[in-house]
């Protein structure tokens, strides 16, 4: 059992925000991470920008493009984790990166470096379970969770995927990419309940969860709820203020209000 699943088993630890590292800048990312920690995030997913974010909808795609323009790489994100860790940051950080940068860094090197940089787990959204054994073996050896994704179409694969899960199981709420949506599939709750019942580790649900009402609805069917695009979109909205030393506090206050709305009971 890893620190991550112990934490997510506690009822009050259910909120997992996702943000894109380097959007609008690495310095501001740090400030936002501290804000999210203060607001009681159970864990935080930190996205590594990539040229071809296949699993992401338009909001995270454009955030990724902006971070790429800032020249942010996987190594920069690892360094960011290391710095935060050294400064006493204690909320579990989950590295969220597509597979090709991992391949280039080296699978073993990445797991070791991520762990040494204070990360608590890794999500690779374009690495299907069937292809993930080498990475999971390394994760097992280093006690570093490689967090699996399951989707409503995983069907008979669900049991096999969760049986080998570490950290938590990331349930994809509905088919398609990340991003805000009005409606979810009718049977999404049943799917979440199935995964939760089968999983030895906590479950988190994400993709499309963008309002306080969504958060309250899904909390009943998963141990944690991931909010990505809605928050990334809010950061985009506050972009110019976040980059202005005179306006940043105002922008951060507005982000705080947004997070509190998402978490309001």
């Amino acid at each position: 059992m890893t620190a991550l699943d112990v934490r997510l088993r506690q009822a009050e630890q259910y909120f997992i925000p996702f943000i894109m590292a380097g959007d609008p800048s690495l310095e501001v990312t740090k400030r936002i991470l501290r804000l999210l920690q203060e607001e009681g995030a159970a864990a935080i997913e930190l996205g590594v920008p990539f040229s071809d974010p296949m699993a992401d909808g338009p909001v995270i795609q454009t955030a990724s493009e902006r971070a790429l323009e800032n020249g942010v790489t996987l190594k920069d994100v690892l360094r960011l984790g290391e710095e935060l860790h050294a400064e006493g940051f204690h909320t579990p950080l989950i590295l969220f990166t597509y597979f090709n940068p991992v391949l280039h860094h080296g699978l073993e090197a990445l797991v070791e470096d991520a762990k040494a940089s204070g990360f608590a787990g890794l999500i690779v959204p374009d690495l299907p379970h069937e292809e993930s054994a080498p990475l999971r073996r390394i994760g097992n050896r280093c006690a570093f969770p490689i967090i699996p994704l399951v989707t409503p179409t995983s069907k008979e694969r669900i049991e096999q995927i969760v049986a080998e899960a570490e950290g938590f199981v990331y349930c994809v709420s509905s088919l398609g990419t990340t991003g805000m949506r009005q409606y979810f599939a009718d049977d999404v709750e049943a799917f979440l309940d199935t995964v939760r019942a089968a999983s030895p580790v906590p479950t988190a649900v994400g993709f499309g969860i963008s309002t306080g009402a969504h958060v309250r609805r899904f909390r009943r069917h998963a141990d944690a709820v991931v909010v990505g695009s809605a928050l990334v979109g809010k950061i985009e909205e506050c972009r110019s203020d976040l980059l202005d030393p005179n306006r940043i506090d105002h922008a951060l206050a507005s982000l705080t209000r947004f997070v509190r709305q998402l978490k309001s009971e």
Binding site: D52, T73, L74, F99, N100, P101, L103, H104, D126
Partner: peptide, 21 residues
């Protein structure tokens, strides 16, 4: 250089950080 994109392991134009060019 070898890399993974669009569900295949093959040769891709990419930078040293594994981003597709």
């Amino acid at each position: 250089r070898p890399g993974v994109l669009h569900g295949m392991y093959s040769y891709f134009l990419q930078d040293e950080a594994g981003r597709i060019l």
